Amino acid sequence: MRVKMGTVVPKMGTFVHLVEEPTDYRTAIAMALHEELHDTHRAIKMAMRWTGASERTVKYWFSGERGPSGDHLIALARHSDAVLYVVLALAGRHIVEEADD
Rank of each mutant, 00 (worst) to 15 (best):
K4Q: 14
I44D: 01
H72W: 03
T57F: 00
I44W: 00
E55Q: 13
T23I: 07
D101S: 11
T27K: 13
L73K: 00
I44H: 03
H38F: 11
E98G: 14
A47P: 07
I44K: 02
H34M: 01
E65W: 04
R93N: 02
I95G: 09
A91M: 09
H41L: 02
E36M: 02
V87C: 14
T23F: 00
D100G: 12
R66Y: 07
P68I: 11
V16C: 01
I74Y: 06
D24Y: 03
M46N: 01
E65L: 08
R42N: 12
V8S: 04
H72A: 08
D39W: 06
G64E: 08
S69L: 03
R66W: 05
A91H: 12
A32R: 07
Y85I: 14
A91G: 07
K4T: 15
M12R: 12
V58S: 02
R26Q: 08
V86C: 03
R49V: 05
D81L: 07
Y60M: 02
V3Q: 12
L18P: 01
G70C: 03
A77E: 11
A91E: 14
L73S: 00
V19M: 14
D101H: 12
A30F: 05
Y60W: 07
K59G: 02
L88C: 07
W61V: 01
I44C: 00
T7S: 06
A82K: 08
S80D: 04
R26G: 04
D81I: 01
H79C: 08
V87H: 10
L37M: 12
R78T: 15
I95M: 10
V19H: 15
P10L: 04
D71R: 13
M1S: 15
A91W: 03
L73G: 06
R26L: 00
Y25W: 05
D100R: 15
L90R: 14
G92W: 06
V96R: 15
E98P: 09
V19N: 13
V87G: 01
R78Y: 10
V96D: 12
E55C: 09
L76E: 09
M12C: 05
D100C: 11
A43G: 14
A32I: 03
W50A: 07
L88H: 13
G70T: 08
H38R: 11
D71E: 13
A91F: 04
E65A: 08
F15P: 00
R2H: 14
M12Y: 12
V86G: 01
H79P: 01
L18Y: 11
I29Q: 02
H38G: 05
A32W: 02
L90G: 06
K45M: 03
D39M: 11
L18C: 09
G52S: 02
A32D: 09
D71A: 06
K45H: 10
D71T: 13
V87Q: 14
E36T: 12
T40E: 07
M12W: 08
D81G: 07
